[in-house]
């Protein structure tokens, strides 16, 4: 009699759908997803859409005219030039630094790792100012450089230098964890089989990191082309000479040439979207070959 009542009370308890311990109720899930979605829409998609809407507000002909304007073309050229120098420079530096950090033990190694991250933690404006302090006409090296007629600050070399500085971590940061994880085993095997150091690098090390390298280069390039703060400080905003695309956008905007400003800005937005697409593709296709490809 008694056991029957217990059984009955158990049966009367409302049936609750079983779910995994780490899962949430459907309602909670919907709310969380909605918050993320609305936030993304407001913060990311709406402004991005506005850029394109504004850029095409005058129609295709005005859009193309804004891009064909001589100062805009000069800015694009300069941006491409800066990226064409800064990206290979950081490619070489990144591979060398990652190689040194991942494969050798030496004094000051952890300091080097910390220093590589410095450009991420320093505000770009500070980086630009630092370069002015070194290369400006009243700076440390400025008078000496002036004597030889070399202009760095408020000229293209300065823009290239700060861009290299700001984008320095990208390649190295992608490679270091991957190369550390891979160790030196395959390299030692190649050397023991008679391969020279250069052939070992070319045939063994490089193929093992190629996707991570491409990933790092991609991010490095996006930042090199889009950098504003540091370049703005050191460039001097000389139209047609030291204006990169982001600086050109700002100048046009300040002159109330909204449509032209957003036309040039849309190119940078397209670059960003392309980078994002390629990055996603690399992550999806070669995740296993890019141990370090997380974050950023």
């Amino acid at each position: 009699m008694r056991s029957e009542t217990i059984a009955a009370s158990v049966a009367e308890r409302p049936a609750k759908a079983w779910r995994p311990a780490t899962s949430e109720t459907p309602a909670t899930r919907r709310v969380l997803i909605a918050i993320a979605g609305i936030f993304l829409g407001l913060v990311l998609l709406l402004p991005l859409g506005a850029v394109f809407a504004q850029a095409f507000s005058g129609g295709w002909s005005l859009y193309l005219a804004a891009l064909a304007e001589p100062d805009a073309v000069a800015a694009m050229r300069l941006t491409l030039l800066v990226a064409a120098i800064a990206v290979p420079a950081n490619l070489v530096f990144g591979v060398a630094a990652a190689w040194a950090i991942a494969k050798f033990e030496f004094r000051g190694k952890s300091l080097l790792v910390t220093l590589i991250d410095l450009p991420f933690s320093v505000s770009p404006v500070i980086s630009g100012l630092a370069y002015i302090l070194v290369f400006g006409s009243h700076g440390l090296l400025g008078p000496w450089l002036d004597a030889y007629g070399i202009k760095v600050a408020f000229a293209v070399p300065g823009i290239v230098l700060v861009t290299i500085f700001v984008t320095l971590p990208f390649v190295a940061r992608e490679l270091i964890p991957l190369m550390e994880e891979q160790g030196a085993g395959e390299e030692e095997a190649a050397l023991s089989l008679g391969a020279s150091g250069w052939k070992t690098f070319l045939f063994v090390t490089l193929p093992n990191v190629k996707w991570a390298l491409l990933y790092g280069v991609l991010l490095c390039n996006a930042r090199a082309m889009g950098e504003f703060g540091a370049v703005s400080v050191i460039s001097g905003h000389i139209r047609g000479l030291t204006n990169t695309m982001p600086l050109h956008v700002e100048i046009l905007y300040n002159e109330y040439a909204f449509q032209a400003a957003f036309a040039v800005a849309s190119l940078l937005a397209i670059l960003a979207l392309l980078t994002l697409a390629l990055k996603t593709f690399l992550e999806w296709r070669f995740a296993g070959d890019m141990a370090g490809a997380r974050g950023h």
Partner: peptide, 28 residues
């Protein structure tokens, strides 16, 4: 190590992941 001409076999094989078996063997 190259001049010594020794055959070295590693605990974790250290095969070249991106090469076929034939290319691995022919590498040296």
């Amino acid at each position: 190590v190259q001049e010594r001409n020794v055959g070295f076999v590693f605990q974790h094989y250290a095969l070249f992941k991106h090469m076929s078996v034939l290319d691995n063997i022919g590498f040296g």
